[in-house]
Every structure is written in C-alpha cells, then in structure tokens.
Simulated scan of single mutants.
Amino acid sequence: MTKPNELEPLAPTEAIAFYEDDRRSEVSEETLQSHGYRLQRFAEWCDDNGIENLNTITGRDIQHFRKSRSEEVNTVTLKSQMDTLRVFMRFCESINGVQNGLADSVRSPSLDRQNVRNKDIVRANKAETILSYLDKYQYATLEHALFRFFWTSGCRIGAAHSVDLDDLHLRDEFVELEHRPETGTTLKNGYSGERAISIDTRTRNILGDYINENRHNVRDDYE
C-alpha cells in the first residue's frame, strides 16, 4: 500500500484535468464531457469541505460526498456519478495522488427492477444522442435549454421549477436555487436545500441564447 509520504500533492481540479487528458483518446468527446460534469460536482464538494489535496481524502470522505449527492439527485443520477468517481479514483491511484485501494471504497447504489420501472431513465449514450439532435435541429429552444441543464447539472425537476431569471448568473456560470414557499416554488429540503449550481460554458451559452431569442416574455403573479 502506498504510504502517505509517498503520495504526490494533487488538487481536485488538477486531478480532473489529468484524468480528462488521459481519457481523451479512449472515449468520445460527449462521454468525456459527461464525466467532466459529474466530477465537477465532486470538485465543488471538496472545495466546500476544505479538501485541497486528494492525498488526504479517505473512504469516509467519499461516503460523506455520496450522502450529500443522494440528497440532491435521484438514484439513477447518483449511480452514474459514483461509478464515474470510482474510475476517477483508480486513475488517481495510478499517479500516486490518493491512497491505494481508495477506489474500492466508492460505493454505487444498485438499481433494482422496481427502481428502474418507477423512473424515467435516460442513459448516457441516449442523452448524448438527444443533445446532438437538439444542438443541430432545435438549438436554444425550451426543450434544448431544459434538457441540457438537467443533464449537465443533475438538478431535480422540482428544484429547477424554482429558478427565476434573476437566479441565472450566466456571466459567472452558476444558477441559484432558492426556497420560496410564499410563491409556491419550494425545494425538497427547504431552506437547507438552497445552493448554487455551477454550469459549463456550453450550457451557459444555450441558456443565454434561449432567453435572448426564444423565451416568451411572461411573468407570474408574484412579479
């Protein structure tokens, strides 16, 4: 087993960049982007919890991350994120960035038949096909903007329903989720569920183009 003093310092964002560069010749650009979106959630969690060097991360930290994500996304999304994190951790092991065996501590939820039957599942390859079609034939439509945001952020439909125009910080590439029971737009976990969701540049551009070109200028009863 690799000893702590044999590890080489590795920041989460640096590790993700190394990983993407290593996988670039092995997978499609769409798959690589999907992995990047999922790993960005992990990098954000590390930042929120003061983890600047992956040398120090433990199996317990991985479990805390899993619990945090399980409160924000459904089981299907959680499984895809944890599966990607396991592959990522194996890569980090190979470059002396984390303790050997850490990848084995990444537990992914199982999807039983009842779970699958009760959810509308869009698998990665299907989602990539849908996005390619929307990019080409329905660019910046409502359907394009929504699907892109849901797929890249892992956001729940109910949470997205709470988003107002003022919550979109496109220049800074993030979306705010706020609990507003007085206006009928609530979050599953109430005020504790309020958070900022980062978005990639491509998603930002599509949302911006939808707002500027195709969005109907409507207001609700609370404006």
Results as ranks from 00 to 15, higher is better:
Glu8Met: 13
Leu10Cys: 08
Pro12Phe: 10
Pro12Asp: 13
Ile16Gln: 04
Phe18Gln: 13
Tyr19Ala: 08
Glu20Phe: 08
Asp21Tyr: 11
Asp22Cys: 11
Arg23Met: 14
Ser25Ile: 10
His35Gly: 00
His35Glu: 07
Gly36Cys: 14
Arg38Val: 00
Leu39Ser: 06
Glu44Ala: 14
Trp45Cys: 00
Asp48Lys: 12
Asp48Tyr: 06
Ile51Tyr: 07
Asn55Cys: 14
Asn55Tyr: 01
Gln63Asp: 15
Arg66Ser: 08
Ser68Cys: 07
Glu71Asn: 13
Glu72Ala: 15
Ser80Phe: 00
Thr84Cys: 02
Arg86Cys: 00
Phe88Trp: 03
Phe91Thr: 00
Asn100Leu: 12
Asn100Lys: 09
Leu102Ile: 02
Ser105Ala: 14
Pro109Cys: 15
Ser110His: 09
Asn118His: 12
Asp120Pro: 00
Val122Asp: 02
Val122Pro: 00
Arg123Val: 06
Asn125Thr: 07
Glu128Tyr: 05
Glu128Ala: 13
Glu128Asp: 07
Ile130Ser: 03
Ser132Leu: 12
Lys136Glu: 15
Tyr137Asn: 12
Ala140Pro: 02
Glu143Asp: 15
His144Tyr: 09
Ala145His: 03
Leu146Gln: 07
Arg148Tyr: 11
Phe149Ser: 03
Phe150Lys: 03
Thr152Gly: 06
Ser153Gly: 09
Gly154Arg: 01
Cys155Glu: 01
Gly158Pro: 03
Gly158Met: 05
Ser162Gly: 12
Leu165Gly: 09
Asp166Gln: 14
Leu168Asn: 10
Leu168Ile: 09
His169Tyr: 14
Arg171Glu: 14
Phe174Gly: 05
Val175Glu: 02
Glu176Lys: 13
Leu177Ser: 04
His179Tyr: 15
Arg180Met: 03
Thr185Glu: 14
Leu187Ile: 08
Lys188Arg: 11
Ser192His: 09
Ser192Asn: 10
Glu194Asn: 09
Ile197Leu: 14
Ser198Glu: 12
Ile199Ser: 05
Thr201Gln: 12
Arg202Pro: 04
Thr203Met: 01
Arg204Val: 04
Leu207Met: 10
Asp209Gln: 12
Asn212Trp: 08
Asn214Asp: 10
Arg219Thr: 11
Arg219Pro: 03
Asp220Ile: 13
Glu223Pro: 01
